[in-house]
């Protein structure tokens, strides 16, 4: 099953060029006639297979940037590209199909079972009847930690953590090349958050997809990422390479290198804040 997932992404991992690139992106929001600059000449490059965390204070434009990259909002100027393909609301379906989004809340349809929620993206694309896709969904549900007896439960019967797991499985059901995550674990407790971080790393290793991860949590950003982009006032203020080796395990969180790097990121954040 593992090969079934990874083969589709192999070609992507071999490309050395920037996978996601934003150049000079500007976006203003109008609220009651007052214009507010949300993205301010923002530039960012993410290489294929990388996990990049966007860290920054509330309202600095992290989630908006994610939505621009997802093609849900058009920027006023600048270019956003995925493998050279221009991203916009009207981009071709083939490009859109390569991107998946995990929202801050699980956003499951309450009338659909876990299985049918995870199947939904494939159903919309008319692929839900294919046997290989059904095998893929079974595999994904196992990877994220669902027993087969839970597949036919409704979201109201699940805990917050399980809902988020289902949401991650749904995002992976289309075997995306890019996974955008908008503070997915913000509402969960530390234990659960740490477990889901490991799950995300496992999925990233298995599917080799590029991830852009919005968070407020410095430790989470360090643990997950190859790079941390610190955002401030609508632009990337600093890009920090995380010097910790992969694969990462939970015990790394208590290492001195981790603590030292935590200080570096924390300092960078306060610098950008001031």
């Amino acid at each position: 099953m593992g090969s079934l997932l990874s083969t589709e992404n192999d070609s992507a991992t071999q490309s050395p060029a920037a996978f996601i690139s934003c150049s000079n992106v500007v976006l203003d929001f109008q609220t009651r006639g007052i214009s507010q600059r949300v993205l301010n000449d923002l530039s960012l490059r993410v290489m294929s297979g990388q996990i990049v965390s966007l860290l920054g204070p509330s309202g600095c434009g992290k989630s908006t940037l994610l939505r621009v990259i997802a093609g849900l909002i058009d920027a006023d100027s600048g270019r956003t590209e995925i493998r050279g393909q221009l991203i916009s609301k009207t981009m071709p379906n083939a490009t859109r199909d390569e991107i998946s989004f995990v929202f801050q809340e699980p956003a499951l349809l309450p009338w659909r079972t876990v299985w049918h929620n995870v199947m939904l993206p494939l159903e919309i694309r008319g692929l839900s009847k294919l046997n290989e896709k059904r095998e893929l969904i079974e595999h994904l549900l196992q990877v994220v930690g669902f027993k087969s007896s839970d597949w036919h439960k409704l979201p109201s019967q699940l805990s917050g953590g399980m809902k988020m797991r289902a949401s991650i499985a749904r995002a992976m059901s289309t075997t995306p090349k890019i996974l955008l995550l908008d503070e997915p674990f913000a509402a969960l407790d530390d234990m659960l958050r740490s477990k889901l971080n490991d799950l995300l790393l496992a999925i990233s290793t298995e599917q080799k997809c590029t991830m852009l991860f919005v968070t407020h949590n410095i430790a989470e950003a360090i643990y997950l990422s190859d790079e941390i982009a610190v955002m401030s006032h609508g632009r990337i203020a600093e890009c920090l390479k995380v010097p910790l080796p992969f694969p990462r395990e939970s015990k790394i969180r208590s290492s001195s290198e981790f603590a030292a790097y935590y200080g570096v990121v924390s300092e960078s954040l306060s610098r950008c804040h001031s």
Binding site: A70, G71, D97, F101, L120, I124, R125
Partner: peptide, 23 residues
């Protein structure tokens, strides 16, 4: 978020109506 989820899958207006809005 649910609307965005459907838009991300390039859902048609009909799919949006029958699979999301009506239920």
């Amino acid at each position: 978020n649910l609307r965005d989820l459907f838009r991300m899958q390039s859902a048609t207006r009909w799919q949006m109506l029958t699979k999301l809005r009506i239920p």
